[in-house]
Amino acid sequence: MIAVVDYGIGNLRSAEKALVRVGADARLVADPEELGEAAAVVLPGVGAFGMCARELRSRGFARFVVEAIESGKPFLGICIGFHLLYGRSEEDDTAKGLGLLGGTVRRLSGSVKLPHMQWNRLDRTRGREAAMLSGIHGDSWVYFVHSYAPVPDPVMQGVVATCDYGGPVVAGVEVGNVWATQFHPEKSGAVGLSILTRFVERCGEVAAGRVMRSEGL
């Protein structure tokens, strides 16, 4: 079972439904302890970093999400669910992320409208394997809604794709068992469903032992 973390913020149903659409046994999980039984964890996120960080902790999910990631289970963070992997965000100085990846979430800059709320083309990082994008055409467009994005430290750590919006914006990261996207695969039509299909396939491979379960972060 793929657990979609239900921490009471906005539209989480779409992520669950999109995973079900591509054949996954996915469901919204509101009880943190159930993450222990899940084969994989998806952390969606909409709204504000501070609100999501606080809900994740107050509902008791933070520890179980970290445990799932450290145990090497396939993990997918989406939008704010991606931001939460970092320690802090300029969006809210008072809120703490999980701090699993190095870097900071920063406000987008440049003479562009915010939120970055549109489809944009993915630019793959040269010379880097992107499991989430395998089999997907080079000229692929996905849907973004955000005003902040992670700036990894070390620079470009795990970054497999960026997009151009007033400058390069980190769009996708893969670090071991952790996949994360700034865009919303569940809202990105055929391209997004293909990315979710890759994730579900990866979960199957890990479960079947065909791919070594990674050490976790």
Binding site: N11, R21, V145, E186
Partner: peptide, 28 residues
């Protein structure tokens, strides 16, 4: 269940609770 692009819903929304119902149902 069937739509995997963004969805905006409006009309008659008068409160945060009205909006929440639509977002939780699957509106973006």
């Amino acid at each position: 269940d069937r739509l995997f692009i963004p969805l905006t819903v409006g009309g008659g929304v008068r409160s945060v609770d009205d909006a929440k119902k639509l977002l939780y149902a699957g509106a973006d």
